[in-house]
Amino acid sequence: MSAELTPGISRLGTVLTSGNPAWTSLLGLCPLLAVSTSVVNALTLAVATTGVLLGSSIAIATLRHRIPEFARLPAFVLIIATWTTCAVMLLEAYAYEIYGSIALFVQIIVTNCIILARAESFASRVPPLAAARDALIVAMGFAAALLLLGAVREIAGKATLFAGMEQLFGPAAAGWEITVPGVESGLLIVVLPPGAFITAGLLIALSRGIAARRSARGRRTDNPPDAVESRS
């Protein structure tokens, strides 16, 4: 369990791209699809999820010798629920406006399978520091998926980017909003529920297509890349 710094960095790369838990195993898909209507919603949920994942991983790793085997799952769930309650209270206190629009999905972090999966398969077996690093890496992967989907849906659906950031970062962030020039309104369907499913499906297919292309190119290393390009 020592000397994991370099693998940690390469693992971060995998988690952010091809091995992203949100895309590969579809864990935590509910909040991913529901909250990704804009970047500001996505960012708020990503921060809340990161906090809960980090807090509960450290707590579970610290208590791992004291939690009896038979009461493992209930104990994990209660720890996660406690941290989620803290996240809910913090958001209610400091970002009430934005909390109002995603309230249900912050509370539902309790049932986010990514967190329980990390607790069960990793955090309950290692010391707190390793659990914290793992939690951060996994949370960054989840946040990357959430922000990517949020950005794509906000650009395509509303023709804006970073709208409403002042709800999270204070009045100074009001000027962050970018509008797509020459477009008056986006495709409404992308922001509506069907658009969430379709956009997510297209993004996963795109990332798979790119990965397949790359591995096909890797196999023909003796061919110059131009030859591959002209054939397709």
Binding site: L26, P193, F197, A200, G201
Partner: peptide, 12 residues
């Protein structure tokens, strides 16, 4: 998974 998601979108 991708085609399942797109079909779910059409169902939605």
């Amino acid at each position: 998974i991708p085609i399942a998601l797109v079909s779910a979108g059409i169902l939605a």
